[in-house]
Nucleic acid binder design. Structure first.
Length: 269
DNA sequence: GGGCTCCTGGAT
DNA sequence: ATCCAGGAGCCC
């Protein structure tokens, strides 16, 4: 479900409600949702939420006693602030209880996970340490070097979180369309001018998506359980067979890098 | 690279 | 009944 704009929207929503609040209790519902050891309940009790942070598509919830809860939502994960008397819906796996509200982690497909560590040892977690520069933080220079240095298809590179973090299937397709680059192109063969255009479009599209509070295609909801709006502005994703906004050609879909890729065969070369 | 896997559920 | 899904790791 969530890519950078969705994860950031959730973090911004939730931060307003839980930063500074003290944890009263936690509820373990599905043990297998934890990536490593399940933290003891006492690790959470009386801790205060000191701040939230995004690393790629990971959500870090920092606690006052120098521990951090890590959350990855994968495809169908949801993180919402609820009232204690809201019914606990199916596929809810973990709850953090505050005095007047609860933070609930729900995931239909259970691809998502939770993890917990001392904050000073976050970089011992390989999946965090290996993340590439953030899609909204990488410089144009850094991005050009990255793309020119790889021989993979550009779509694969954009999805590779260890090369550049935060992009997923929707925004990779949308950015490639905006830059006029075919998803199957070998990255090393793309001209620097084209790569700069792609970098600019990644930033512009991610920022627009953030302003629209993310894309709700099926499951995504923000930290309050509301849908985003950016799906209304998709140019290729989910528009297979519809006319290209630039040239009128039919938008095509084909598998690239193991994912369905939506593109205009005429505008993207 | 491509293919398979984890899992549930909606669309066709 | 079959296909497909905002992710990503593992296997040749």
């Amino acid at each position: 479900m969530p890519e950078l704009p969705e994860v950031q929207t959730i973090i911004d929503d939730i931060s307003k409600r839980i930063v500074g609040k003290t944890i009263k209790d936690v509820a373990y519902i599905t043990n297998s949702i934890w990536r490593n050891e399940i933290p003891e309940r006492t690790r959470f009790l009386k801790a205060r939420v000191s701040g939230l942070e995004r690393k790629g598509k990971h959500i870090l919830v920092h606690l006052s006693d120098d521990h951090t809860l890590i959350i990855h939502l994968k495809m169908t994960g949801k993180l919402t602030v609820c009232r204690p008397d809201d019914p606990i819906i199916k596929h809810t796996h973990f709850i953090v209880r505050f005095a007047r509200m609860e933070l609930r982690f729900n995931d239909i497909r259970r691809f998502g996970y939770l993890d917990f560590t001392e904050s000073s040892r976050l970089n011992d977690l390989k999946y965090l340490a290996d993340l590439g520069p953030d899609a909204l933080g990488i410089s144009e220079y850094g991005f050009v070097n990255l793309v020119r240095s790889k021989n993979s298809r550009i779509k694969s590179l954009l999805l590779d979180q260890n090369s550049i973090s935060g992009l997923g299937n929707i925004y990779a397709d949308e950015a490639l369309y905006a830059a006029g680059i075919n998803p199957t192109r070998k990255s090393s063969g793309i001209s620097p001018a084209r790569i700069k255009r792609l970098h600019l479009n990644i930033v512009v599209i991610l920022k627009k998506a953030l302003a629209s509070r993310g894309s709700s295609v099926s499951d995504y909801v923000d930290g309050s359980g509301k849908q985003g709006e950016f799906q209304n502005f998709h140019r290729v994703y989910g528009r297979t067979g519809k006319p290209c906004n630039k040239c009128g050609s039919s938008i095509k879909k084909k598998t690239v890098a193991g994912r369905s890729s939506h593109y205009c065969p005429r505008c993207q070369r």
